[in-house]
Nucleic acid binder design. Structure first.
Lengths: 138, 138
DNA sequence: GTACGTGCAAAGGTTTTGCATTACA
DNA sequence: TGTAATGCAAAACCTTTGCACGTAC
């Protein structure tokens, strides 16, 4: 089991590195499944039977505030977490319901009158359609 | 109180027009506030004291399936409903938390290799920033 | 040592479900 | 009249909170 994330960096940010948080970070590192808090809890508590929901939620909130995970609002019923903090977009496959990364930078050109009215800092595109796997088998 | 939506159309679609549904449709018609099920319940039950949550939820699910309202997944804690079914985007104001329509058609140009991999049918852009009102007072 | 994280249980908020009753078409 | 919607209550989910205890720094 390799610690793939920069532990030193978390200390610098001021985040206390507890075994539970290390386990969560290890689980999330490179994870492309956009897991929910419950899925993270289930996975991590396999190796950490005493871990509680409250700890997962509080750890995720801390990591979110520190900018180390992104909270996704794609699923209507629960939050999902993405360790990839670089700007990217998501496709929800209407067939298998999976959430797939779309790592393309689109040129969202705002009309001048809109620029004058709104002060837009970020944007996130939610695509719906078929993922490559489902497209092949349909 | 005018019935502003095409009642005949709902009959044609096969949706039964109950007084409760008419009240919900009247409340939603032209509504730009993207209300939650709870807000819809509160507003409609003022005129309809016997109305229950279950009725609101089931009516909204029916209207969503019939394509008459859009279920928005912008708010992490609850679904919001939009009677505007034409394609448009949304800005969540980081200051007042309001959800504002962005009625601009952006040219989301998909790269060729992406087009070959994915079969994308729709997209929805979530903007974050300041709405015109909050921008003025900040 | 101290501030902060953890674990447990309980509560809060949103949505769904089961079932008897009511009413649209 | 028959099928579908309503109303009520309870349950199912997801998330948050309070508090005593434990631990990273």
């Amino acid at each position: 089991m390799t610690v793939l994330f920069p532990m030193k960096r978390y200390r610098e940010i001021g985040i206390r590195l507890t075994p539970q948080r290390i386990a969560i970070l290890n689980y999330l590192d490179g994870n492309k499944n956009h897991p929910s808090a419950d899925e993270i809890y289930k996975a991590v508590s396999r190796k950490f039977p005493t871990m509680s929901f409250a700890t997962v939620y509080s750890a995720l909130a801390t990591l979110r505030d520190a900018g180390n995970v992104v909270e996704l609002t794609i699923d209507p019923m629960k939050k999902r977490y993405d360790p990839n903090t670089e700007r990217h977009h998501h496709l929800t496959c209407v067939s298998c319901k999976r959430v797939v990364d779309i790592g393309i930078e689109f040129n969202i050109e705002l009309p001048e009158n809109l620029k004058q009215d709104f002060d837009i800092t970020t944007h996130h595109i939610e695509f719906n359609g078929l993922c490559p796997e489902c497209r092949r088998t349909t």
